[in-house]
Design a protein around this nucleic acid. Structure first.
Lengths: 249, 249
DNA sequence: TAAATAACTGCATAATTTTGCATATATTTA
DNA sequence: TAAATATATGCAAAATTATGCAGTTATTTA
C-alpha cells in the first residue's frame, strides 16, 4: 500500500468514525504508530483532519474555499477593508456591493459582529455564511457570469424597499471631474439604489481605480460620504479628493 | 533546488509571462527539458497551468473551487445526476433545489446546454456560472447558513410567478406511506412551490434517504412525476415504489 | 503524583521517486 | 512534404523520502 492510499484510508476512517486512535489505525493499516502519527501530522497541516492526543478527529470541511492568491493587489485590498470595517457597529443594517475588495471585507468582519447584511454577490454571500451572528439577505436576480453578482431591475426594485445604516460600494472608476463612474449601465443603477437606501455611503477604491473614467455615472464627489483608499497620508492624489470636500479614510 | 520549489518557479514564470517555453524554463531552472515537461504535465493535471505544444500558458484561475472529496456518497450522486440530466432538453426552463446531488447535477450539465435555470442555492448558482449558455436566475431571500440556500416567504412568493418545464428536487426523506417529507417547514413549502411552478417534478433521492420520515409533508407518492434513485433494477425497494405507481429512473 | 500511554527526535535502512539519456513517435512550420 | 522541433517511453543511476526503532520527553489518567 502506498503512502497516498494509506493517508486516504486514514481520512476515510476519520470521517466514518468521528474519532480514531493511532493504535487502532496502526493495527488496521499494518504500519507502525510512528508512521500513523506522521500521517496524521501531514493531514492535519493540510487541514483534512484535526490531530489530537491519541489520534485524530474529523474537521468540519468547507464545501467551497477560495483561492486568495489570485486576487490582484490583495494586500492593498485587505488594508482598505480593515479601514472600512472600523466604520461598522453592532446591530447595523449594511448593504455590500460586489468585487474582491468587498469580499475581503466580508472575510475580515469580526466573528462576533451582529449585523444584517444585504448583498447581491454570490462569493460574498458564501463568505458571510461563515459568520454565525450575521443575518445575510441575498438580493435575487439574473446572474452576471463573470462578476458573480445579480443584476437587473429586480435588484433595483428590491433595494428601493430596503433601509440601511451604511453601504459599502466597490469603485470601478473615480476621478475628480465625473466622480464615480461604472462600465455597466445596470451596475451603475444598482449602486445608485444602494446609496439611496443607506444613511451613509462608503466607497472602496484601490489605487488602480483612481483617475479613471467609465461611461455610466454613479455619483459625483459631493455625494460621497466617505472614500476609503490605500493612499499615503501625504499623497497628492489624496489631497485632491480632500480639497474637493470628500472625507478620505 | 527541490522539485516543489522548482514547480513553484514554473508557476511564477507562467503567471508573469503569459506563455513560457520548455526550453526557456529548462535553461532558467537548470534542469533538462524532460524534467520541465514532466513538471508542466503535473501542474497541468492539477489545473495550475495549461500545457501547450512547446511549453505552458497560464490558466484562468477560478476564485472559488469546491472540495468534492467531502461530498458523502459522491459516486452515487453522480449516477443519479446523470440519469436526471437525460430528462433535460435544450431551451427548457428549469428549477433546481439545493443539496449536493443537485450540485453534482449542475456541474455535470453539458457545457453546450442552452437553458434558463432558477435556483436558490448559492453553490449551485456559483457552479452554473461556468456554463456559458445557461441563464441563471437566483431567487433571493434570507440565507440559511449551513445549507447555503435562501429561505423565507420571498422565495415562495417569487416561485408563484415562475413557470418552468421541469424541476429537480433533492429529497430529504421518502417512504411509501407519507411520501416525501422534510425536516424544515420553510423548505417543505419551497419544494411545494417548485412543484406548482413546474410541468414535471423530478425527485432525486440517494439510497440513505429512503424509508425515512421527517415532520413536514412535501407531497405524497401520487404527486411524484419521476423519482431518480441509485437502486438496482431488481431491488425490492425499487419495486415497492413502482408498484405504488411512481415512475422510477 | 505515579504509572501508563502517547509524542517527539535522531538515525540507519528500505522504498520510492526523480532525473537525464537514448530511442521512437508526433507535431509544427517553412 | 521534408526538415526542424517537440513530445512520449523505458530505463538505470541518483536523489529524496518514508519507515521503524531506540531513547527521551510530554501528557493523560487512575
Amino acid at each position: 500500500m502506498k503512502k497516498k492510499e494509506r493517508q486516504q484510508k486514514v481520512i476515510d476512517e476519520v470521517s466514518i468514525n468521528r474519532k480514531v486512535t493511532s493504535s487502532y489505525l496502526s493495527e488496521k493499516l499494518k504500519v507502525s504508530e510512528d508512521t500513523i502519527r506522521r500521517d496524521i501530522k501531514e493531514l492535519h497541516d493540510k487541514g483534512l483532519l484535526t490531530k489530537v492526543h491519541g489520534g485524530a478527529i474529523s474537521t468540519i470541511q468547507k464545501l467551497y474555499h477560495y483561492n486568495e492568491d489570485i486576487i490582484y493587489n490583495r494586500e492593498s485590498k485587505v488594508r482598505i477593508a480593515q479601514k472600512a470595517i472600523s466604520l461598522i457597529e453592532d446591530g447595523m443594517v449594511i448593504i455590500i456591493s460586489g468585487g474582491t475588495t468587498n469580499l475581503m471585507l466580508a472575510k475580515l468582519l469580526p466573528k462576533d459582529l451582529k449585523a444584517t447584511i444585504y448583498t447581491y454577490s454570490l462569493p460574498i454571500a458564501m463568505q458571510l455564511t461563515e459568520h454565525p451572528l450575521i443575518e445575510t439577505i441575498f438580493i435575487g436576480g439574473k446572474i452576471h457570469r463573470n462578476s458573480m453578482v445579480t443584476i437587473g431591475i429586480d435588484v433595483i426594485q428590491y433595494l428601493s424597499n430596503v433601509r440601511a445604516n451604511i453601504c459599502f460600494v466597490g469603485v470601478s472608476a473615480l476621478n475628480t471631474e465625473q466622480g464615480i463612474t461604472d462600465e455597466g449601465y445596470e451596475v451603475s443603477l444598482i449602486k445608485k439604489a444602494m446609496m439611496n437606501a443607506s444613511d451613509r455611503s462608503v466607497f472602496l477604491a484601490t489605487t488602480n481605480k483612481l483617475n479613471i473614467r467609465h461611461s455610466y455615472d454613479v455619483c459625483n464627489l459631493k455625494e460621497i460620504d466617505t472614500l476609503v483608499t490605500d493612499l499615503d497620508d501625504d499623497c497628492p492624489t489624496r489631497s485632491t479628493f480632500i480639497n474637493a470636500g470628500v472625507t478620505v479614510l
